[in-house]
Design a protein around this nucleic acid. Structure first.
Lengths: 204, 204
DNA sequence: TATGTCAATGACACTATGTCATTAAAAACT
DNA sequence: AGTTTTTAATGACATAGTGTCATTGACATA
């Protein structure tokens, strides 16, 4: 049986992946080198190239699981029958989104760094982005159909506005840029999204 | 007089800067090399290093003027005395912001690419970001004082939400990602920011 | 025991960066 | 005018990383 052979190969690959993870966490994506990964995995220089095309390839593999989780959050159903229910559902989705990012903070930090460096990684994130935007667009159409939301707003543009603000706060949290309470951010964003900043007098 | 000497040096530096610009536009920031810049400028390999520390340094210099323009837009005064005036001022600032980015589209594209690659360039952009956020925060405090805006919203969080959505649309435009009309984006964002997506019933 | 397979390897070719001693031409000095 | 000083410009060199591929050797199979 060649089962042992394949088992061995799998183990080497895992050893490399684990080493890559460590090297990325230690030095960041940019400074990490294939040399360092091979060194930490105690494999020869050529070995990394047997299993991975390049540095990006390591990260893409390391991100798979997290990507899947984001995808699941994008797919959370949205069928509110009232404003307050809508508010709860929206706040809940934001909470899931930000919590996931915080939970996977380390790898998200690396991911963010890599988005700017690797076109491959960037397109992976763009994919997640699109899933959220499409899903939010549908939610808005739903809210408009049931007269919960203003009809005059373009769902796609509105969805993008909303997602972008979420995304940027998410990166803020990942990078520890501000020290606001997450709950406060969630409530503020949701409230702004639903009611706006200005006191309503009449609509045009 | 050493004026000729300095004149000569200045010319060489300008020649290099111009060459860098061309190389960046042609190959993008990441793929561009110092070699290519020297080649295009018809200077020896060491010459680039006389005037610039590294590749980043070229871009930072090329961005100075654009940074200044962003700074000016961040500083646009905001003293509305009514909701509709606020709307106009806000829409105008957005329009200036997006128009500037479009006008400097080529260099903004390079800049965006470099933000992900160079810590130096990233901190430059973070600086612009902070200027906008601080300025918007003040605007919100002003609107709240004059009872135009809801008191319960945290100005800093709200300012960040608003700026982030602007920033992301700006990058969309720079990267030609969507084909919406700019006017439509401006109107939608401003409207969303001021009135929210949901039809107001009562506020809590 | 012999043979084929394939995981693993490291030398090699290539490309890029950044440094520095050297060059040569202009500026300053006598 | 001749000598010295300054300095802009240079390219060889040291260093470091990437990716390839012919080779190796241990294991599986006949």
């Amino acid at each position: 049986m060649s089962n042992n052979r394949k088992q061995q190969a799998m183990e080497t690959k895992q050893k490399l992946l684990y080493a890559a993870r460590e090297v990325f966490f230690e030095h960041g994506f940019k400074k990490a080198t294939i040399r360092q990964i091979n060194q930490k995995a105690e494999t020869g220089h050529g070995t990394a190239y047997v299993y991975f095309k390049n540095k990006e390839d390591f990260l893409v593999e390391l991100m798979l699981e997290t990507m899947e989780s984001f995808h699941n959050i994008a797919a959370i159903p949205f069928r509110p029958s009232s404003q307050s229910e809508a508010h709860k559902l929206i706040a809940h989705q934001v909470e899931q989104f930000l919590s996931l990012a915080l939970e996977k903070k380390q790898i998200m930090k690396i991911f963010k760094e890599a988005i700017g460096i690797s076109a491959n990684v960037e397109s992976n994130w763009q994919h997640i982005r699109n899933q959220f935007i499409e899903s939010i667009t549908k939610d808005i159409v739903y809210a408009q159909r049931y007269a919960l939301a203003h009809q005059h707003l373009n769902p796609s543009i509105t969805a993008r506005s909303w997602f972008y603000m979420n995304e940027m706060f998410m990166w803020e949290l990942v990078e520890d840029q501000y020290t606001d309470d997450i709950e406060e951010i969630i409530e503020h964003m949701t409230s702004l999204y639903m009611n706006g900043l200005y006191i309503s007098t009449s609509h045009g």
